[in-house]
């Protein structure tokens, strides 16, 4: 789907490269987490994926199209949607449905089709009721849902979420995650979550860890969480549930499975308690 080949990028006036020699493949239909501490280069990587930034060395290919080719850039951006951190700074117009229509209008979709796409996109994020509201009357989570709908209306194959939950309250953030999981499972949209939240990474199929512009790890979250030392070294941590499991293990209450979220941990503890009881 997206291939990043030995990509490097250095901002003007920066002492060290934001990204150096990154190679990464985003596979069709997967949910990929890109985690890293501040300054790890994860936002730069996100901006390479839809050609907002062009790699100074190496290449980024979207379905075989190189982002460096200017005539392909609109096609690439239509395929790779991007949702940013600040919900206020990505809505353009004064009415929700007009805003969702902004993308399709830009790529010249005929008017009746825009209407259909807007309605479908708003339904996918449960915002139909707010179609004629003004964006500034919505909560942060609702604005972010509108931003997602604005991307969905372009019928993208990949959605890149650049710390899209970082500025939201916990409830709003949970809504966004739920929507992203549903879009991934039922609509087959490939999702790239750029995040610092390990709990969000735990929801994904695969995660890559960035540290100072280099790739430290690329594996299933469950496997990466085994190497707590590496994550701490990268300025990150393992999810609270993994920490709890490790603490239980070190106290001698070894759990059979490797739980990484609340449900899994609960059932592992329950299984162990049951096993004890029957002994």
């Amino acid at each position: 789907m997206i291939e990043v080949k030995n990509a490097g990028y250095t901002y003007e006036g920066a002492a060290r490269p934001a990204l150096s020699d990154i190679s990464l493949t985003v596979r069709r239909g997967e949910m990929l987490a890109v985690v890293g501490h501040n300054g790890s280069g994860k936002s730069t990587l996100a901006k390479l994926l839809n050609g907002l930034l062009l790699p100074q060395s190496g290449d980024v290919l979207v379905d075989g199209m190189n982002t460096k080719e200017e005539r392909l850039i609109l096609k690439i951006r239509q395929r790779v949607g991007m949702v940013f951190q600040n919900p206020d700074n990505q809505l353009v117009t004064t009415v929700v449905e007009e805003d969702v229509a902004f993308g399709p209008e830009s790529i010249g979709v005929p008017p009746p089709d825009i209407r259909k796409r807007v309605d479908a996109a708003l339904a996918m994020v449960n915002m139909q009721k707010y179609a004629d509201r003004a964006p500034h009357m919505l909560s942060g989570g609702q604005k972010q849902r509108v931003a997602i709908a604005g991307m969905l209306a372009m019928q993208p194959e990949v959605l890149v979420m650049d710390e899209a939950t970082a500025m939201l309250d916990p409830e709003g953030g949970a809504d966004i995650l739920e929507i992203m999981r549903r879009l991934n499972r039922t609509e087959g949209i490939t999702v790239v979550m750029i995040t610092q939240q390990m709990e969000e990474a735990a929801l994904c199929d695969r995660m890559v860890v960035l540290f100072q512009g280099t790739l430290l790890a690329d594996d299933a979250p469950r496997k990466i969480f085994r190497d707590e030392a590496m994550l701490v070294c990268a300025g990150l941590n393992v999810p609270a549930m993994v920490r709890l499991r490790n603490a239980l293990n070190s106290k001698g209450a070894a759990l059979l499975k490797e739980p990484i979220n609340v449900e899994e941990l609960a059932s592992a503890i329950a299984a162990r308690a049951k096993a004890r009881h029957t002994q």
């Binding site: 907002l52 239509q78 353009v92």
Partner: peptide, 8 residues
């Protein structure tokens, strides 16, 4: 950037 991402 958001507008560019939306093909403006």
């Amino acid at each position: 950037m958001a507008m560019e991402s939306r093909c403006y």
